[in-house]
Amino acid sequence: MKDIGPIRQRIAKLPSVKNQAIKLSENAIKKTQKANRFFLEIGEFNLFLWLTVKASFSRHFEFKEFLRQCFLVGNKTVPLITLTGLVIGLVLTIQSRPILVDFGAVSKLPGMVALSIVREMGPVVTALICCGKIGSGMGAELGSMKVTEQIDAMEVSSTNPIRFLVVPRVLAATLMIPILVLYADALGILGSWAGSNIKGDVTFVLFFTQAFSAIGFSDFFPAVIKTFFFGAAIGFVGCYKGFTAGRGTESVGKAANQSVVLASVFVILIDLIAVQITDMLY
């Protein structure tokens, strides 16, 4: 007679096999749901981008709202950028000076600091500050408008909310952030002059002549161009996160927070791409 012991053992194991199969399928479903959400988010992001681009080229441009946003984005960020720009220049100079003195190259200090501020420090630091100040502000403002049904109210009164709320904000950020970066660059170099006078003695004219002689077109132009992309990314991400906020008040905070994080990631990625392109071209 055939020994049925092994078969019995297999049957005895069946429930645990079944449980494992259930667990596996549950995990698979959870992972699929996560993947689904991820792809849905990407789809939603692209759709929102398309609607924004489409609305940007519509006949009815909200010029008054655009000017108001330019004022809010530009004017209200100036104090923070002033402080940051000055401190960047000052700190860079104070920290670099001893090394340059050791190498006997202290005369290169203005050029070195100006170059690092114009090419990298000014644009990136200003953009990251704007992520916090402007991106979170837009995310929170539009998020609270969504929660309190103001965006719905706009829609039912036959006004395209993307045209009125998103386009002016994105364009204002795109235009104002390069201006803020140029302002931060100038203050950074001014801060550097102040820093170099703490332990040395250099005239304002001499410092600036040396600083600007070190900066060429290939340093200045790509650095300015990328700031337009920084601005567009900050404005767009802030608006997108605000627009897609959930229904509770908690989601307003979440929208503001996610705006900062995502906009910062975009700034860093755009900077990386810009550096690669600049490297290839010049």
Binding site: S144, M145, T148, E149, Q150, D152, A153, M154, E155, V156, S157, S158
Partner: peptide
Amino acid sequence: LAELRVKIGFLFQSGALYD
């Protein structure tokens, strides 16, 4: 849809005034 919405007034629960 925009043409139709012009003919409809919607009073939201929260009022939804622009802050």
